[in-house]
Structures are given as C-alpha cells and as structure tokens.
Simulated assay, not measured.
Amino acid sequence: MNKQVSILAVCAILSLGLVVWLSQSPSKYKFEAVLLFDDLQEFANQVESLEIKNAQGVLFSAKKIEGRWLATFAQEQTAYPISQDKLSEFVEIMMRTKLVEAKTSKPENYIRLGLQSIDVEDSMASLVTLKTSDNAWQVLVGNEVTLGKGQYILKLDDPRSWRTDKTIHLPIDKYSWLRQPILPYQAQDISSVSRVDSFGWQIARSVSGDLQLINMPKDKKLEYPSILNSIVSSLTSLNFEEFLPNDEVFEQTLKIVTQLEVNTAQQNIFQVVVSELDNKYFVNFFSSNQTEYWQKWTYQVSNFSAQQLIKTIDDFLEQEEAITSNSDTKYQNVDEDDSPN
C-alpha cells in the first residue's frame, strides 16, 4: 500500500513539474513584436526626403522644397508635385509597421524572400531611404507575404530578415505617386471653354452659373441638359499615363487634333493642345506666362481621355435621327389613340 502511495506521489510530482515547465517554457522563445523603426514616429514631421531604389536604379525620389513635396527627376528637369495622400499613407505605414517573426540570417537564402541586394541585376527588392537633416532610416523591402498581410524586410544593420505585420505598398513606377489630375482646378473654377480651330464652338457660364452653348444653332437643342458639363469635367479630371519635358523637336512630330482655350474664374487663360502620334495621344498646355508646373510637360493620355476633348458642336446637340425617331413615336401614339376599339 505504501509502495503504491509512493508511486502515485512521484507521478503527481512529475505531472505538476511538467505542467509548470510547459507553462513557462514558451516565454523563453516568445518574440514580442517591435516597431520596424522605433524612433521614426518622433521625427516623422521632420522627414524631408524619400528615395526608393531597385536594381534598375532610382524608382522614385521626392524632397520637401519650401514646404512642398516634389518628385525630383534628372538634374535638368523641373520637379513635379506628388500626391500628399500617398506620401502620408506611406509614412504612416512605415511608422506603425512591426517586426513579428524573424526569418533567415543566411544571405544565400534571401532570394526566397525577395531580399537580394539591389546591386544584383535581377533582384526583386526595393531599398527605401527616409531622411531628415540629422537622421536616416533604410530598409530593404522584399516579397509580400503569401497569405494575409505582411512583407519580408531586411534592415541594413541586421543580418536577420523579418516578416512584418503590414504590407508596405510601393509605387509601381515613377508616375504612380505623382499628383493627379493634371490641372489644379475644379469644374466650378472654369468659366468658359472654346474650341479655337476650324470646328469652333464656345461654352460659357451664365450669371446663374450654368453652362451655355454660345450661338446655339436655330431649331436645335442639347442632347441632354448636362452634356456641356462633360467637356469641363473631362478637362479638370484629366489624368496622364506618362509625361516628358516639353521638347520643340518632339512637338513638331505631333499631329494636332484639336485646340481649346480655357478661361478660369480668376481670369487665367490658357490653351490646351491635343495631338496624336502613332496612335498615342498627347496634351500640352500653353499660356503667355509659362510659370505653372503643368505647362512645362508633354502628357501622354489615354485614347478615351483624348476623345472626350475632341468634341464638335454636333456632339453636344440632339441628332436628326433621334428627333425623327421621337416624332415617329409621337405620331404612332396619336394613331393608336385614334384607332377604333
């Protein structure tokens, strides 16, 4: 009996010890998530430059110049405004991203996480650099995590790679974080638009603020009441796909499709030239005072966007076929009403 009690006592002690060990052992290996950059939040408002490089070179570069964030290109080119929303979102992500799981420390295995050095020709990684006047933060960003959110990253001062808790979205090209639409105007800022080539027409705002087609042809009416708004909204929402600095030699190769003159509520007047080359469409903006950033570039736009600006006066008016069809329907209804029961 005593022997059995002793055995049971030993088993109880062993079981209790196992429970205690199991409850304590995980804490030895548990990793508490830490911020990617523990001091970036403190200096975020002082960040004054951002650069993203990959194996092909500088993908995106921006600097804070006189309080404005501008994308910078080749030395001789004019800087371009960037999307403040995209920049704010990116810096916010970089501030709040945490390291949640340590990965490989072996350089030969970095390739599996997309973390090869950008000095390697076929590297898929991007090197992100944020700077203030006194501080700098750098991280190599690799593949996104296959399931769920997260990214594989490598801090340049740490051979360990890491999985983060957030996905770090980078620009897909040098244009994707730039300001869109092209023009800094809202539809209500435009007081008149005129086509000034051989297909001339003019749309202007009345005292009430409505758009009107000047010199409307007699016995004609608009296709629908708000159609004149379409040309204005097409201008103020015009996005580019790519752009290049104004170049007279290149511009001479373009075939002009239409020319518009735009007058703003502040009495600023500028011309819009839509051109075509090899089934691609381009837009330039000109005025007597070429000081605005959007007047210094030739923009490639989509075929659809270009077609919205190439309007003849007939495009605003109800067509004869529609009028005839409506008349036929009217007479048909009259005939049906007069038919005997």
Rank of each mutant, 00 (worst) to 15 (best):
S6I: 14
I7L: 15
L8S: 14
V10T: 08
V10K: 08
A12V: 03
W21N: 01
P26I: 09
S27K: 15
K30G: 06
K30P: 08
K30F: 12
K30W: 13
V34W: 01
F37M: 03
D39H: 11
D39I: 03
E42Y: 13
S49F: 09
S49T: 12
G57E: 08
V58A: 04
L59P: 09
S61D: 03
S61Y: 12
E66F: 12
E66A: 15
R68I: 03
A71N: 13
T72C: 05
A74S: 14
A74K: 15
P81K: 11
S83G: 11
S83W: 12
K86R: 09
L87Q: 12
F90A: 02
M95K: 15
V100W: 03
V100F: 02
T104P: 02
E108Q: 09
G114C: 00
L115N: 01
Q116C: 07
E121V: 10
D122F: 01
A125I: 04
L127C: 04
T132N: 06
L140I: 07
G142D: 00
V145P: 08
V145N: 13
T146M: 13
L147I: 14
Q151W: 01
Y152R: 04
I153N: 00
I153K: 00
R163A: 09
R163D: 00
T164M: 13
T164R: 08
L178Y: 06
R179P: 05
Q180G: 00
P181G: 05
P181M: 10
I182Q: 10
S194Y: 03
V196M: 01
D197S: 07
S198M: 01
S198G: 03
W201H: 06
I203K: 05
I203Q: 06
S208K: 15
G209I: 00
Q212F: 05
Q212I: 15
D219W: 07
I227F: 07
I231T: 09
I231F: 09
T236W: 10
L238A: 00
D247S: 04
F250Y: 15
Q252K: 14
V257Y: 07
T258N: 15
T258L: 15
V272A: 10
V274F: 00
N279D: 11
Y281K: 14
F286E: 09
N289T: 14
Q290N: 14
T291F: 02
E292I: 06
E292T: 08
K296W: 02
Q300P: 05
S302L: 06
A306R: 12
Q307T: 12
Q307G: 08
L309Y: 02
K311T: 02
K311W: 07
D314V: 00
D314H: 05
D315W: 02
L317H: 02
E318G: 13
T324L: 15
D337T: 11
S339I: 00
N341P: 07
